Computed example of a mutant assay.
Amino acid sequence: MSQVRRAVCPGSYDPPTIGHLDVIRRTAGLFDEVYVAILVNPRKQGLFDVDERVEMLREITADLPGVVVESFSGLVVDYCRERGAQTLVKGLRGATDYDYELPMAHMNRHLTGVETLFLPGAPGQVYVSSSLVKEVARGGGDVSSFLPPAVHTRLMERLT
C-alpha cells in the first residue's frame, strides 16, 4: 500500500489572494492531503485575525478535496512533523522570494528532512501580494481581480 502524500502550504494569508489560491489548488493536484497552515505570530498585527483568515480560506478551498485549513504557532517543521507531512510548498513570485525562502528551505531540511517545493507564481499574478492588495484597496483602487470574491467582499467591509 502506498504512503499518503501530505504537503503543507504555510503563510500568513492576510488576506488570501488568487495567487495563494492558485498555489493551494496546484498543490492539491500533486498531493493526497494539503494542510493550509496559517502562522499565528503574536508580534504581527494583521488586518484580519487568524480565525477570520481560517474561515476565508476554508470557504475558498471548500471545493478542493483533501485540503485542511488550520492555524499554528511555532516552527513550521514541527507542524509538518505533527501532521506527517513530508513537503512544504511555497509559491514564488520572483528572485526576491527565492532568495528569502532558499535558506529557510535548507534549514528545514537540515532540522527535520522536510523538503521544500517551490511553485512559480502564475503569469499575471506574480506581482500580487497581500500587502500590496491592502495598500491599493486602502487608497481606493479596485483590487477585485486579485482576490476571490468572498475575500474581496470581506476586505471592502473591513476597510469601510
Rank of each mutant, 00 (worst) to 15 (best):
I38C: 06
L39T: 07
V40P: 00
V40T: 10
N41Y: 07
P42H: 01
P42Q: 03
K44G: 14
K44N: 14
K44Q: 15
Q45I: 06
G46A: 13
G46I: 10
L47K: 09
D49H: 14
D49E: 15
V50Q: 11
V50I: 15
R53G: 09
R53C: 09
V54M: 12
V54D: 13
V54Q: 08
E55Q: 15
M56L: 13
M56F: 05
M56Y: 08
M56Q: 05
R58P: 00
E59D: 08
E59R: 12
A62F: 08
L64W: 14
P65Q: 05
V68P: 02
V69G: 04
V69M: 01
S71Y: 07
S71D: 14
F72T: 02
S73W: 12
S73A: 13
G74H: 02
V76E: 03
V76R: 02
D78F: 05
Y79C: 08
Y79P: 01
C80V: 04
C80K: 09
C80F: 12
R81K: 06
R83T: 01
R83Q: 14
G84I: 09
A85F: 12
A85D: 09
Q86Y: 07
T87W: 15
T87R: 15
V89I: 14
K90D: 00
G91K: 10
G91M: 10
G91Q: 04
G91P: 06
G91A: 06
L92F: 04
L92E: 04
R93A: 04
R93N: 03
A95Y: 08
A95P: 07
D97V: 15
Y98W: 09
Y98D: 05
Y98R: 01
D99Y: 05
Y100C: 10
Y100G: 13
Y100H: 15
E101R: 07
L102W: 04
P103M: 13
H106G: 07
N108S: 13
R109Y: 08
R109D: 03
H110W: 12
L111I: 08
T112G: 06
T112V: 00
G113I: 09
G113E: 14
V114S: 06
T116F: 08
L117H: 05
F118D: 00
L119G: 03
G121L: 08
A122T: 09
G124K: 12
G124F: 09
V128L: 02
V128P: 05
S129V: 05
S131T: 14
S131D: 06
L132I: 00
L132N: 00
V133C: 06
V136E: 04
A137L: 00
R138V: 00
R138A: 07
R138Q: 11
G139F: 10
G139R: 13
G139P: 07
